[in-house]
Amino acid sequence: MKPKAFRYHRPADKADALRMLAEEDEDARPLAGGQSLVPLMNLRFAAPSALIDLNACADLATITVADGVLEIGAMVRQREAELSPVVIEACPLVAEALALNGHPATRHRGTVGGTIAHADPVAELSGVAVALDAEIVIERQGGRRTVPAADFFLDALTTVVEPGEMVTAVRFPVLAPGTVTAFVETGMRGHGLAVAGIAAALRIAGGRIDWVRLAAIGVSPVPVRLAALEEALTGRALGEVESAIAGVADPLGDADLLDNLEGSSAYRRELVPTLVARAVRVAVDKMGVAA
């Protein structure tokens, strides 16, 4: 388990990185934290011709809040975002999701942009991005586009990012005051990869759910926004949550479902309403309101 040879570049900033990416061939890849890419390289499932190592690009590692948007630079470490008071204040669901992603040693290296760009079906942060309508900033030399998270993920480990492009930031909405959030997941192990997980954010007004955003990870090759459940829950009293969820016949709609060693697609279908109910309960509990 040793990687294949590659050309190595270490740009000093984003502009430098985008230039190198433009100059390299189609099989070049940006190297962020490497916590997903390097295992694939060691297993020789991935063999990039060149790596553009972003770890020296300080301008990709900033966290800013402006105009109702929390923008996290692609090279912000997962552990840093998880513990960042700015992130916790603006969009706590990001921090909650990252705390479930890997382990301290992988989060010290792993980055926010890296986990989004890698597009693992069980990546928690992807679910948050889809639930909250985050935007992914993608840049190439001389060009920049912003893609809604819902359109970003195409398949397991596949996104709209083209050769010559890279993710440079993720833009999450700053959550309105009073928003409560939860990330709930289940897996074979007490703290391991999820079989399914739910990102949830909601607000209560007058004892009823006023606004709710939900997405599922792990059940499908890409995160699934649970629009039918959001609709069913909106306007419901807290005591009606379970029945409202149960009333949605097919919360996953026509999403392709994963079927693998961790569980069948039928199992994943069964987990979603259960985990959504839990996520809502956990979120609501944070308000100190009895469900």
Binding site: Y8, G34, V38, P39, D53, R79, P104, T106, H108, R109
Partner: peptide, 12 residues
């Protein structure tokens, strides 16, 4: 900060 040395290249 702790890190996996099997997922880091020496050049880094």
């Amino acid at each position: 900060r702790t890190a996996r040395s099997c997922l880091t290249f020496a050049v880094q």
